[in-house]
Simulated scan of single mutants.
Amino acid sequence: MDDGTDGQTVTDGRKTYLLVDGENLDATLGTSILQRRPMPEERPRWNRVLDHVERHWDQPVSGLFFLAVAGEMPMGFVQAVTSIGYRPIPLQGEGKVVDIAIQRTLAALAERDDDVVLASHDGDFLDEMGRLADGERRVGLLCFQEFVNAGFRELPGLEIIDLEYDVKAFNTTLPRLRIIPIDEFDPLDFL
């Protein structure tokens, strides 16, 4: 809300936690959309994602980027996401370590008043996201809409945010097949 003195926005102290399941997004981009390993220039611009969420919900964002590390720390990537404002969370161990860590983080956030955006398509997070979609906070799912686990669409109050169409996180247009609202149809896209 505007404080009436200098035009700056004043929040109620809440913030948004953005939890990024990088492996899930990268696998969906590569396997389902590009049908090959994405080139660096075809990956999301993660700074745009942070900026979009902060502007969209008009409050500070804390970005947590979860990644599994099989061998050595991927220092180039870790330094890159750190420099744009994410806190990297490199994990190692048995099982789906990224899923386990995100589930634990979502459960911990249920005890707080902050808002949450999960960047993933994975149905393994349905229970935790369902608990967060309690009407007391804003809850979002950042994804490629056509690949979202159907259970997410049934969560009341969950906002689905498309990584390409809403966030504009890519420098190129991805070869996605989607239903096109007639107001957005441009025949030049197909000629």
Results as ranks from 00 to 15, higher is better:
1 M>P: 00
1 M>A: 14
3 D>T: 11
3 D>G: 15
3 D>R: 12
3 D>A: 10
4 G>R: 15
4 G>I: 04
4 G>T: 12
5 T>V: 15
5 T>G: 10
5 T>M: 14
5 T>K: 15
6 D>S: 13
6 D>F: 14
6 D>P: 04
7 G>M: 04
7 G>W: 03
7 G>F: 03
8 Q>C: 13
8 Q>T: 14
8 Q>G: 13
8 Q>A: 13
8 Q>I: 11
9 T>K: 13
9 T>W: 14
9 T>N: 14
9 T>G: 14
9 T>Q: 15
10 V>Y: 06
10 V>K: 07
10 V>G: 09
11 T>P: 00
11 T>Y: 10
12 D>F: 02
12 D>S: 04
13 G>Y: 11
14 R>C: 07
14 R>T: 12
14 R>L: 13
16 T>E: 05
16 T>G: 07
17 Y>T: 06
17 Y>M: 01
18 L>E: 00
18 L>F: 08
19 L>Q: 07
19 L>C: 04
19 L>S: 07
20 V>T: 09
20 V>M: 06
20 V>L: 10
20 V>P: 11
20 V>I: 06
20 V>F: 03
20 V>R: 06
21 D>W: 02
21 D>N: 01
21 D>P: 04
22 G>V: 09
22 G>Y: 05
22 G>Q: 02
22 G>M: 00
23 E>S: 03
23 E>G: 01
24 N>V: 01
24 N>P: 07
24 N>L: 04
24 N>M: 03
25 L>F: 06
25 L>K: 00
25 L>W: 02
26 D>W: 12
26 D>K: 02
27 A>T: 06
27 A>I: 01
27 A>H: 01
27 A>W: 03
27 A>C: 04
27 A>N: 09
28 T>K: 10
28 T>I: 02
28 T>M: 02
28 T>G: 02
28 T>C: 01
29 L>D: 01
29 L>S: 09
29 L>E: 09
29 L>K: 13
30 G>S: 11
30 G>I: 05
30 G>M: 05
30 G>F: 08
31 T>S: 13
31 T>I: 15
31 T>K: 13
32 S>Q: 15
33 I>S: 05
33 I>C: 08
34 L>S: 09
34 L>Y: 08
34 L>P: 01
34 L>H: 10
35 Q>N: 14
35 Q>P: 00
35 Q>A: 11
35 Q>G: 01
35 Q>I: 00
36 R>P: 06
36 R>N: 08
36 R>Q: 10
36 R>H: 07
37 R>Q: 07
38 P>M: 00
38 P>Q: 06
39 M>G: 12
39 M>A: 15
40 P>D: 05
40 P>T: 03
40 P>Q: 02
41 E>N: 15
41 E>I: 12
42 E>R: 09
42 E>A: 03
43 R>Q: 12
44 P>A: 09
44 P>Q: 11
44 P>E: 12
44 P>K: 14
44 P>W: 13
45 R>C: 09
45 R>L: 09
46 W>R: 12
47 N>M: 08
47 N>K: 12
47 N>E: 12
47 N>L: 09
47 N>Q: 12
47 N>F: 04
48 R>H: 03
48 R>C: 06
48 R>Q: 06
48 R>Y: 07
49 V>T: 06
49 V>H: 11
49 V>W: 11
50 L>T: 00
50 L>C: 10
51 D>P: 07
51 D>V: 05
52 H>F: 13
52 H>G: 03
53 V>G: 04
53 V>T: 01
53 V>W: 01
53 V>E: 00
53 V>L: 00
54 E>P: 04
54 E>Y: 02
54 E>A: 15
